[in-house]
């Protein structure tokens, strides 16, 4: 296997929120240009892991290296310099409610790239064209549907021509066609612009459409990392249960029957 450049490295991170251990020793490497999908059940720590990678949450122990720099050791300026190199699509889009679609896209451009207003306008149009929403510049986020918000969020994430794009549940809550459109956009971006992508999702269709490599996260640990083929032919019963969506298996949804009886008559 050829030696690939590691762009993000997560080393042994632990994180506790209150009394709940969310992440317990996560190790993960993301290579330049690949699409890495982190999948796992709700509440397994996927989003928390993503937040560690973008530096909005600091780990209790362990470290995150992005382009070789330890994110915990960077000051505000260093972190900002790094942040200009990546874009994030949030779960709900996280568009600024008080600004129009265009202003949402302009915000980072105006601040970080000293460009002429005309050029910014053109760039906004180009990004909106990419997500199929040209002509919607003047609308407010409240006038958009959920899928449109997500697409505008995506346009905003790539507004600064980032090297890495993070997706937090890009297709959750969208109809199948829109989910397909978003997946295609993610694929296009990573193939055409050779952007490194990290996506967090539990939508299996989406996973097998976009992933180069897949990491399965369960109860704060990575169970398996592998290509689509490796994951499909997995021998790990938990991963198998997850991708097949079986209600029964090593991952138990229901607690034991005795517990239930005790709980009822208590």
């Amino acid at each position: 296997m050829e030696e690939k450049e590691v762009i993000i490295e997560v080393k042994d991170i632990y994180k506790k929120f209150g009394n709940r251990q969310i992440l317990s020793g996560v190790n993960l490497k993301v290579y330049k240009g690949e699409t890495m999908v982190i999948m796992g059940g709700s509440g397994c720590g996927k989003s928390t892991l993503l937040r560690h990678m973008v530096g909005t949450v600091k780990p209790d122990s362990g470290s995150v290296y992005m382009r070789g720099q330890n994110m915990a050791e960077l000051d505000e300026n260093g972190l900002d310099a790094l942040r200009k190199k990546f874009g994030i699509l949030f779960q709900s889009g996280a568009l600024f409610d008080s600004l129009t679609v265009k202003e949402n896209l302009c915000m980072a451009l105006r601040e970080h790239a000293k460009l002429d207003e005309n050029i910014i306008s053109i760039m906004v149009k180009m990004k909106l064209e990419l997500v199929g929403l040209r002509g919607f510049e003047a609308l407010m986020p409240s006038q958009l549907s959920g899928g449109m918000k997500k697409r505008v969020g995506l346009a905003r994430a790539i507004a600064m021509d980032p090297e890495i794009v993070f997706y937090d549940e890009p297709t959750t809550g969208l109809d199948p066609i829109m989910a397909g459109v978003i997946d295609k956009l993610i694929l296009d971006l990573s193939k055409k612009l050779s952007i490194t992508s990290v996506a967090v999702t539990h939508d299996m269709n989406s996973v097998f459409r976009i992933a180069d490599r897949i990491a399965m996260l369960h109860e704060g640990r990575i169970l398996q990392v592998g290509t689509q083929e490796e994951i499909k032919n997995t021998t790990n019963p938990m991963v198998k249960q997850f991708i097949e969506g079986q209600p029964e298996g090593p991952v138990n949804f229901f607690m034991s029957k005795e517990d239930y009886l005790e709980e009822l008559i208590k």
């Binding site: 937040r51 973008v54 530096g55 909005t56 972190l79 900002d80 310099a81 942040r83 200009k84 990546f86 994030i88 949030f90 779960q91 709900s92 996280a94 568009l95 600024f96 409610d97 915000m107 980072a108 601040e111 970080h112 600064m160």
Partner: peptide
């Protein structure tokens, strides 16, 4: 803005 991740979005846009 905080609960709808908009504050976090600002932060990650280096704003």
């Amino acid at each position: 803005m905080k609960v709808t991740e908009q504050v976090e979005a600002l932060e990650t846009m280096a704003l």
